[in-house]
Amino acid sequence: MSLALVLEQLLNGVQFGLMLFLMSAGLTLVFGVMGLINLAHGSLYMIGAFCCAAFAAMTGNFWLGLVAGIAAAAAAGAIIEVTVIRRLYARDHLDQVLATFALILILSEGVRLIFGPFPLYLNVPDVLRGTVDLGVTRYSLYRLALIGFGIAVAVGLWLLIAKTRLGIQIRAGESDREMIAALGVNIRWLYTVVFALGAALAGMAGALVGAIQSVQVGMGEPVLILAFVVIVIGGIGSIKGAMVGALLVGVIDTMGRFLLPRAFATFMEPSQAMGVGAALASMLIYLLMALVLILRPKGLFPAHG
């Protein structure tokens, strides 16, 4: 086990964490502002990836595909919000879980109807092909770009929420929705915008990750569950919590899968150690989540006091 390998895995973990942040940010915003659990967030991730892959294949340009993916996810988000989600704000969590579970079924089958049952492939753009020399190791340029992109989006999101008029309205909506409605903010429009913003971030994550994985129906759900782990660890409704949670989950999951089998191999038979290590590693983040909830039932950074 060399330093180069550890560094590579660590970077993979950070990259994974930042992509999880893009997913979680929307999820946590929607919960924080509207009080809604949206299981269909993973479907928006899938829509972003599919539209990006299809549009990139059509035009031969990854960046046009990325824009199309983000736009399609945002549009899908806005349509879903207006037709279905809007009716769920006043309902209890059970109804929200079920209705958005139904949306997953509908959207997954819808995507399968439109794009066919086979996975699509999305190539890494030419400029970002190859590796860079980091001194001790060479690392994939595209993954490094994802890290940079993730950080840039996070900063942008922070600026949006901390510095703009829309951000003020979002924060006000989190703390007192009746009051800002009374102050003349169009709350229905605000909710649609927030939902579409979250959808755009999810679609962006789907499109970006689509280039290093295959783009297929059902790709959203594993990421969705991880994103829920992230926001529960971070504290639901908190963007800062989502960032910390995403990095924790990304790094711990990646490093666990890398280190645990090796750690067990020091005192067990190699074949057995692989099995035990892999089994434990895949449970690690859920253990972390359970632990956080038991010690701090509202997450690490509770959004509302």
Binding site: F31, I37, H93, V97, I225, F228, V229, V232, I236, M283, Y286, L287, M289, A290, L293, P297, K298
Partner: peptide, 13 residues
Amino acid sequence: IFFIMITLAFAQM
């Protein structure tokens, strides 16, 4: 929602 998520987490484990 925390109860929903923690029961989900245990099942995922």
